[in-house]
């Protein structure tokens, strides 16, 4: 950066700047002309410094007296009303959240499911129970042992309703769900069966995402073991997230990502610092069942961080559009993402 250090020094030098702008006196002029001759290697600096001083010429907006006056009159009223400690007023904004009361809906479904469960036990038959969620829809499922399962969008949970007879409680999941498993009687296990592996539980809270080729398990509380045929069982500790890497044939473990994987149950997505755009897109695809198409690959260079509410698809897309400076257009099940086109002022 020594080259730019020189440039920095030169641009701080008032005499040099006067010379550049040809506002210098005779002596100064002679000094800098001599300097330029003695240091021909500085020709590039001088050229760059000139370019930087000239910059780019803007058309100046002329003052609109009438508009300024009208605005001042408005301001005058504000100043008269203002006491010295008032907070500046905040305008109503267009992104008002209209929180969908999904909990109520989920509760109703759970009640309906319960009565169904009751009848089937009464008839003493092994009943296959299945829950399925649509896109952008969650469902809370309460099992008779107190286990709570929140089924994420576009997912299916199924089990045979013969828990009492069997040693272990087994449920099958495709898609994504958050499990809050009640403590099991001694000798019994709660098992979540996925397409590629099984999670064995002894009272705990965790998230499972099996949308992707390799299921991703995030343990929020307690302890589970991951079981895969032909591989040693993998214990998972609270705060860890794991998936089975088919290439290396071992489990990949990361820490501190459970919020990222499991916060959808609070109707929000939590992105860690610098979450790649690819991940955001995958979430959108999984949750809304949309196929994403990109205008160009530079969109993939964008990063997200922080958390964002997802209970209203329209608000979510508006926020993402604003914050990542991208535009969305939906055509059937296709979501097209492009760089934001700015309106001319």
């Amino acid at each position: 950066m020594s080259k730019n250090n020189n440039l920095v020094e030169l641009l701080k030098n008032a005499s040099f700047l006067r010379w550049l702008k040809k506002e210098d006196g005779v002596e100064e002029s002679a000094h800098w002309n001599k300097w330029q001759q003695e240091h021909p290697e500085n020709a590039q600096f001088v050229e760059d410094a000139k370019m930087m001083e000239l910059g780019i010429p803007f058309k100046k907006q002329s003052i609109n007296q009438a508009k300024t006056k009208a605005n001042w009159d408005k301001l005058g009223t504000k100043l008269q009303n203002a006491t010295s400690t008032t907070e500046p007023s905040i305008p109503l904004h267009k992104l008002q959240s209209t929180r969908r009361n999904w909990l109520k809906i989920a509760a109703t479904i759970a009640v309906v499911a319960f009565s169904f469960l009751g009848i089937s036990t009464y008839l003493n038959k092994v009943e296959r129970i299945q829950y399925q969620t649509g896109y952008a829809e969650n469902q809370t499922i309460q099992l008779s042992d107190g286990t709570q399962i929140i089924l994420a969008a576009n997912s299916t949970l199924a089990y045979n309703d013969n828990f009492v007879e069997l040693d272990n409680r087994k449920v099958q999941l495709s898609g994504e769900a958050y499990f809050k498993v009640a403590a099991q009687p001694t000798g019994k296990q709660f098992i979540v069966e996925l397409k590629d592996l099984a999670v064995t539980v002894i009272g705990t809270e965790f998230n499972v995402n099996s949308h992707r080729e390799n299921s991703i398990i995030s343990l929020v509380e307690g302890k589970v073991t991951l079981n895969k045929e032909g591989v040693a069982e993998q214990p998972l500790l609270a705060g860890q997230t794991a998936s089975f890497n088919t290439q290396t044939a071992v489990f990949d473990l990361v820490n501190n990502q459970t919020d990222y994987w499991a916060d959808w149950r609070y109707q929000k997505w939590s992105f860690g610092e610098g979450t790649p755009m690819k991940e955001v897109i995958q979430r959108i695809e999984e949750t809304f069942g949309l196929t994403v198409e990109l205008e160009n690959t530079t969109i993939l260079e964008k990063q997200a961080s922080g958390s964002i509410e997802i209970d209203n698809q329209k608000v979510l897309f508006e926020s993402l559009s604003y914050l990542l400076n991208i535009d969305f257009s939906i055509n059937g099940s296709q979501l097209f993402i492009s760089q934001k086109v700015e309106n001319e002022e």
């Binding site: 780019i56 010429p57 803007f58 058309k59 904004h93 992104l95 959240s97 997200a304 961080s305 922080g306 958390s307 964002i308 509410e309 608000v315 926020s319 604003y322 914050l323 990542l324 400076n325 700015e342 001319e344 002022e345």
Partner: peptide, 23 residues
Amino acid sequence: QNRLTDFAIVNPINIIIAPAELQ
């Protein structure tokens, strides 16, 4: 305005300069 998201973007300012604004 965006308080419904506590999204933190490093630099939320992305001003546009249109060619029509230049001489």
